[in-house]
Write a protein that binds this DNA or RNA. Structure first.
Lengths: 107, 107
DNA sequence: GGAATAGTTCAATATTCCCGAACTATCAAA
DNA sequence: TTTGATAGTTCGGGAATATTGAACTATTCC
């Protein structure tokens, strides 16, 4: 029996604005953040695949990038890994950024 | 005597949020936008090379991406091409985005 | 006209991104 | 415990992007 994978979450002070913007600049990742900020409090990697169009290795990588940008934290839950926004921390590091980006008109 | 190159500037409605964020997510481009929003009202491609570390073909491409994101307009001026922010238009398309991003702490 | 300057374009290289296949970890059932 | 199913990660090769020197165009200055 092995130990369940633990994720490393950066301190927000170690996250650059560049990394934050880059993480948000991808439509797939943005959709994940948008859902986390809205209805879904937590999402598994699987459940983030909207129409199942995105392969899981790609999704896994997107989550990794979101994690590295300080946008989400991920915790093991059974055989899933549930991710949620690091709202307060991210807001403290980048005041108003997430709110403003989420408020933008789409299209 | 040839005709001076004209640049095509997209209508802001044709600019996606993704393109805008992507344009801002690069440190070199971000520095240009930051300077345009601050002291410099207009910048030539040349004068944007801070320490001269960035080759001009790279800079040219960065300006092209900023143009495509609706962030700058470029006009011919003698043998230079001066670029400035499309502030009002960009703000109308993405309310508060530029302000918020420029307000972020660096590092 | 010729030299110099500002940018673009092109092509080659380098870097990043995507995704299928193999792998690890967990839970559930028998 | 063994087997099977599920959730994600990792790895590697191909696709897509980014970078940059060199050649080219357009303009100004002498």
């Amino acid at each position: 029996m092995g130990l369940m994978t633990r994720y490393s979450h950066p301190r927000l002070n170690d996250v650059s604005l560049e990394a934050a913007l880059h993480a948000l600049a991808d439509p797939c990742r943005f959709a994940i953040v948008r859902r986390l900020a809205g209805q879904a409090g937590e999402l598994s990697c699987q459940s983030a695949a909207q129409a199942g169009a995105v392969p899981k290795s790609t999704l896994s990588n997107h989550f990794k990038i979101l994690r590295g940008a300080g946008l989400i934290r991920t915790r093991p839950a059974g055989r899933e890994y549930l991710s949620s926004l690091r709202r307060e921390e991210f807001d403290a590091r980048f005041p108003g950024l997430l709110d403003t980006v989420l408020r933008q008109p789409q299209g």
